[in-house]
Design a protein around this nucleic acid. Structure first.
Lengths: 102, 102
DNA sequence: TCGGAATGACCTGTTTACGTATCATCCACC
DNA sequence: GGTGGATGATACGTAAACAGGTCATTCCGA
């Protein structure tokens, strides 16, 4: 029901970060204090985790959740660009317009 | 219940942003597509909103939720410092260590 | 003094995130 | 061919986020 593109995108960022860290879903779930099926739902965008769960997962992946004024989002996005020598982008915005040319 | 300090802090940031925008709880709740009692719970840290709800509230307040690698958090925090001429800080980190003065 | 707006606080009911258990599939590796 | 790890997916029960309603309190302006 209502596969929110935002949730899909968020889950994709989690997955990329997890892959980059070479960890399994179970390891992240354990660190984030949730079950594997639940972490899977979040990573695939099938469920909307709670605020506390989000933070736990982010930290398990070496990241933090931040509230950024919309005016500063572009500046921060460019700061996070890995200079085009790597194609994984750990940062995530709730802005769906972040979809750039694949 | 376990009044998570993280939720308190998150709610405080929402409240500051809302005050700065001169809006009522009801107006934000309406824009974020949730009920006022629920927005109140989130603002006071009494409830942990879902990921989708968090984004809706953030946007209603002119902000976005971002996933930031922990290594970059300090740099971004300093970027968000309002030059010391204003005491409201719209940005928010899940890092509890952000508690500075008062 | 009397409203009316904003907020805090509680209730009832529905939806859904969550834990736990279970099974199927894929893919190495032996 | 067989075994084990990682993942996808389902089911059931519980806890909590959600909607909607109501009442008390504070504050401000007519």
């Amino acid at each position: 029901m209502a596969p929110d593109p935002f949730l899909k995108d968020l889950g994709m960022h989690f997955r990329k970060a997890r892959m980059a860290a070479g960890l399994s879903q179970e390891q992240i779930a354990l660190r984030a204090n949730i079950s594997r099926p639940r972490y899977r739902d979040i990573e695939t965008g099938a469920a909307a985790a709670r605020a506390t769960t989000l933070v736990n997962i982010a930290r398990a992946l070496g990241m933090e959740i931040m509230l950024i004024p919309q005016a500063m989002v572009p500046a921060i996005q460019s700061m996070l660009q890995p200079g085009a020598d790597d194609d994984d982008r750990p940062a995530f915005t709730s802005d769906v317009e972040e979809e750039e040319g694949a």
